[in-house]
Design a protein around this nucleic acid. Structure first.
Length: 789
DNA sequence: GCCTTGAAGTTACCG
DNA sequence: ACCGGTAACTTCAAGGCG
């Protein structure tokens, strides 16, 4: 029978010792949860002989030595960086044999390279058969008995691999959000010491469950959790930071209590896998934190902050509990209900975030081809790489190995020195997808590169400005083909969007799709200059930025020739005094002469620059204030300093009243002096960017982190530490105290907050208008300093 | 021994 | 574990001065 399958998850196992069985877990159009098996596919890899003539001999050696593992050896032709080469394709019985052979085979004389031997079997299957997760696939299959008692409506055996289908809808997925709370009287909870005290579950079908431990015995809630997940049988399980915390903790506790966390559709435990995610067979386990990380507007990415920012659950409409004190709410019978409410708010927030992030995750998965549970935990580089691998396979190009490379840099983009002060009526003209379009235009790709050694003068090449690298004009390079497809696909999706009702489910799907396409296109340049990339080529990255500099310089010259006054520019944008006719003319010439698109992106009624590059603020024509690069948008300044700068900017841009801005700042300083500013606004957050032992300098956040560790808390690389500067002597770093240890404003070094936070962030703007520190510090304070002397 | 200065270390931003 | 360009902070050691 023919079967349509929306692919949710894919796995494999080896049956009868030597048959690899691909398992495609998915959903049918009538809403059944099924698994389709395919036993017809075998793993393989390639061997590149030093000379094509050696191929036959190598094949003989391979078969003689490893005949028990090798099914067959084919000598065939493939493309490698655009060139046709002869390779041996070695098909093995089971995936483990590829791993076994790939290192041993290298020892055989006459072998230049081993390729595609590091690709997971189920990815190999999807790659070769052009099967995409989170997409519809059609397969000819027959139903077989559910021998293993998997949690599905039916098991099918495929007669041949599925084919991608045209259907674009997304089936209704059953989503389960969960969160755990642990007992933590001694700092960060440890699974070998501290039990789980509560587990919360929420589903998109309205279920809300709060499980509670029997005092400090968590055996029953873990059992109940397992039973509940199985009963609800979700397609997607979401958590917040679940791959780095909840699953590890749950598995650890379960192991200690000698129970199995068998919640997968194959009745197995979550298992840690590639990119650090936990795989739950037959379901998609998605850690929403991975997607929250991309929200640069939220600086401290706690669940509360992210949910608040996205309007999922406002902070003032929920229970907030300081994480370190959770145990107190458990121990105190009067407070325990608050903890329950807190957990309920958390799981509802998590569920709410899934509505915000899953549509994008699904599109990303269907574009780059990584399963839904992996696509979030894979870094940007790996997402781009899988997208490239998909296309390489389709184009018959061999996939290069990941190799270690020595450190190397190259020149990047141009940033213009801004003209300081206030400018009125400024248009920001932006190139659309500049780097991808330049890579397409000049056919910049590893396979079209012509080294000076190889260049004989007869080839038609583009020569890059400044750096002189050459790239063949034809045929189309790998990056050109891939990027063209991406940009064209995005264009097509966007034109479809125009005919849809914003707010409709179809609109949402396509909107997220075009967004995912854009993200991948824009990250491809960065990828090609990444030392860890399979398709790394310094010349490719270097040439792209060289053409970028050339293009923006030409654009500036042209703009000036047309009589446009250029006040600033960065990489792919120029800020000009807005004259519609001249801007239209510029746009037209760039389109006709360069084949690139430049258009007004934003228009500022007024915009303010200091001497610094990459930092400015402006009043947009729609009345909104835009702050770029300044303290107000940085995560490593106190809320107070940011708020002050924001208000100052607002007063200057909207009212143009320096005196009022000064009054405002002085008022804030008075409040600070009289203890009327809440401690929460004084916290400074900074990321621990490396292992604590590796720090050479005594930095404030590191010192605060050490104080946390002293008190039993765990601080890992990548964590953000929040601290307050308290009174005392010595270096600033000595006075950095984790905020949870500060409970009174009397402990705070008010002087620091005045001079190094409020005044500095205010003067960043006001200095241009002739204001200095002593204008901002109130008379009372000055008097007190005088008195002191 | 104290103060100034500039390099180094560090983070987070822009596009 | 995506790039380079940039600003800005604190620390720290060297250099200058007396």
């Amino acid at each position: 029978m023919k079967l349509d399958l929306w692919l949710l998850d894919i796995s494999y196992d080896v049956i009868n010792k030597d048959i690899p069985e691909i398992r495609m877990w998915g959903i049918t159009p009538d809403g059944r949860r099924v698994v389709v098996l395919d036993r017809s596919f075998r793993p393989y890899f390639y061997v590149v002989p030093k000379t094509p003539e050696d191929a036959g001999k190598i094949a003989e050696v391979l078969k003689r030595r490893y005949g028990d593992r090798i099914l067959k050896v084919d000598i065939t032709d493939r493309k490698y960086f655009g060139r046709s080469i002869t390779v041996l394709r070695i098909t093995c019985k089971i995936p483990a044999h590829v791993k076994f052979l790939r290192d041993r085979v290298k020892e055989i004389p006459g072998i230049a390279d081993v390729l595609e031997a590091d690709i997971r079997f189920y990815m190999r299957y999807m790659l070769d058969n052009n099967i995409y997760p989170c997409s519809w696939n059609t397969v000819e299959a027959e139903e077989v008995p559910n021998k293993e008692n998997w949690q599905v409506d039916a098991v099918y055996l495929a007669k041949q691999p599925p084919l991608r289908s045209e259907r674009e809808d997304i089936p209704k997925l059953k989503v389960l959000a969960f969160d755990i709370e642990c007992y933590n009287p001694r700092g960060t909870p440890k699974p070998d010491r501290d039990p789980i005290i509560m587990i919360g579950i929420a589903t998109n079908e309205g279920d809300r469950v709060i499980l509670k431990a029997d005092d400090l015995n968590d055996l029953n809630i873990i059992r109940e959790f397992i039973a509940l997940v199985r009963k609800i049988d979700p397609d997607v399980i979401v958590g917040y930071n679940s791959n780095r915390f909840d699953w590890i903790y749950l598995l650890n506790r379960a192991r200690r209590l000698k129970i199995k966390l068998n919640i997968s559709r194959a009745n197995s435990e979550p298992a840690q896998s590639v990119y650090g995610h936990f795989s739950i067979l037959g379901r998609a386990n998605v850690d929403l934190y991975d997607f929250a990380e991309e929200l640069t507007e939220v600086k401290v990415k706690t669940l509360e902050n992210v949910a608040d920012y996205l309007g999922v659950k406002k902070k003032n409409e929920r229970v907030l509990i300081e994480g370190a004190y959770i145990y107190k709410y458990w121990d105190d019978p009067d407070k325990r209900s608050q903890l329950e409410k807190y957990l309920l708010d958390d799981i509802e927030s998590t569920l709410g975030l899934s509505e915000k992030f899953l549509p994008f995750a699904i599109q990303l998965s269907s574009i780059v081809g990584l399963p839904l549970d992996q696509v979030g935990s894979a870094s940007v580089g790996f997402r781009v790489e899988w997208h490239l691998m998909r296309h390489a396979c389709e184009l018959g190009e061999l996939i290069p190995n990941r190799i270690e490379r020595p450190y190397a840099t190259y020149k990047g983009a141009i940033v213009l020195r801004p003209k300081p002060g206030i400018h009125e009526n400024i248009a920001v003209l932006d190139f659309s997808s500049m780097y991808p379009n330049l890579m397409i235009k000049y056919n910049i790709s590893p396979d079209t590169y012509v080294s000076p050694m190889d260049y004989r003068g007869e080839e038609d090449v583009y020569v890059a400005p400044e750096v002189g690298h050459m790239f063949r004009k034809y045929p189309d390079g790998f990056y050109r083909r891939v990027l063209k497809r991406l940009l064209e696909a995005r264009k097509a999706v966007r034109s479809k969007l125009k005919d849809l009702e914003p707010g409709s489910p179809e609109y949402r799907v396509l909107y997220e799709r075009q967004r995912a396409l854009k993200v991948i296109a824009n990250a491809t340049y960065g990828y090609c200059g990444w030392l860890g990339a399979r398709w790394y080529k310094r010349e490719v990255a270097e040439t792209t930025t060289a053409w970028g500099r050339h293009t923006i310089r030409d654009t500036i010259d042209l703009a000036r020739k047309l009589g446009l006054r250029v006040i600033y520019g960065d990489t792919d944008s120029i800020f000009v005094v807005y004259d519609k006719a001249k801007v239209d003319e510029l746009t037209r010439i760039i389109r006709d002469k360069l084949g690139l698109e430049i258009k007004p992106d934003k228009i500022y009624t007024r915009v303010f620059f200091t001497e610094a590059k990459k930092r400015y603020c402006g009043l947009l024509t729609d009345g909104r204030i835009d702050v770029v690069g300044l303290e107000a948008v940085r995560g490593d300044w106190s809320e107070l300093a940011k708020e002050v700068q924001e208000k100052v900017i607002e007063i200057i841009l909207r009212e143009n009243r320096v005196d009022r801005a000064v009054d405002y700042v002085r008022d804030v300083i008075r409040k600070l002096e009289s203890g009327k500013i809440p401690l929460s606004k004084l916290i400074i957050w900074k990321t621990i960017g490396k292992e604590l032992e590796e720090y050479e300098a005594a930095a404030a956040h590191v010192s605060a982190a050490r104080k946390l560790i002293e008190a039993g808390f765990k601080v890992d690389k990548g964590d953000k530490v929040g601290y307050i500067i308290v009174r005392g002597s010595g270096r600033l770093s000595d006075k950095a105290m984790p905020y949870i240890f500060v409970d009174s404003i009397d402990q705070v070094d008010i002087e620091y907050y005045i001079k190094k936070q409020v005044v500095i962030s205010a003067l960043r703007i006001l200095e241009y208008f002739g204001i200095r520190e002593d204008h901002l510090i109130s008379e009372k304070r000055q008097a007190s300093i005088l008195d002191f002397f």
